[in-house]
Nucleic acid binder design. Sequence first.
DNA 1: TTATCTAAGAGTAATAATTTTTATTAAAAA
DNA 2: TTTTTAATAAAAATTATTACTCTTAGATAA
Lengths: 139, 139
Amino acid sequence: MKQLRKTHQREIILEELCANPTHPTADELYERVRRRLPRVSLATVYRNLEILSDLGIIQKIETAGRQKRYDGNPERHHHIRCLHCGRVDDVDMAEDSEFEIKMPERSRHGFRVMDVKVDFSGICPDCEKEARASRSNAH
Amino acid sequence: MKQLRKTHQREIILEELCANPTHPTADELYERVRRRLPRVSLATVYRNLEILSDLGIIQKIETAGRQKRYDGNPERHHHIRCLHCGRVDDVDMAEDSEFEIKMPERSRHGFRVMDVKVDFSGICPDCEKEARASRSNAH
DNA sequence: TTATCTAAGAGTAATAATTTTTATTAAAAA
DNA sequence: TTTTTAATAAAAATTATTACTCTTAGATAA
């Protein structure tokens, strides 16, 4: 078992990820980290995000056909993505009362069900406002 | 508005996709189509799968970080993916009684919620059997 | 039927996000 | 301090998918 080393790069990457409640992509985070470590490599950011999410310290948000995003909060919670600008926000657990998922133990074809992933999509307030503005201009 | 042409390639692609209840990737389907149309191009398969799913004739199964798969059944239903081999199967609608999702109208941050995607993952019967066999060999 | 228009085809090159490789550096153990 | 090897920087590779270019062939009109 190979042991984990505490490197300066890794510390800064984690710090920057946790500093904001946004869910940056690897390259967005890279830009932020670069302000503090100008010689850091994008591959280092990717590698560390991979390691940290494997360890359950952070969370990887994978959405089909889009860049991966990363969440400094490792706790299980759902996300909503803006269909227009791609922005990702948390869906509060308090709202979970409004939806409920009971997993079957086996799917009909005999799969042992181990996890279920719920992803919301919609339009964020900013994009909605923008759309409304351009609509009223057109008329 | 550009009109759709009925081409031989498109017909075969759709036929082959619907022939099996599997959910092939573009290249798997390409191999199948190639047996009937040896000169077909992979790009043609991709283009037609795109067109057909845009029209709602088929369904694109997009899972983060993995190849897209395609489903000849356009009706809304859930899927389960094997974490080991990547195979995708349908989760029957009959089972939907076991889980229920009520969408909130707005997320806490003011997103207008428009859709929710539910993806199951687990271990398929084949991989489970295989795992069991290799475990018993080890002891 | 024949001419015309253009969607769609084949084949290939390009793209983009991510991962791997290689040589070097630096944590941490000895 | 020396040694070990995980982690880094930088570059190259990978891989699925898309775009491009030129050609072919459905569909419509003459």
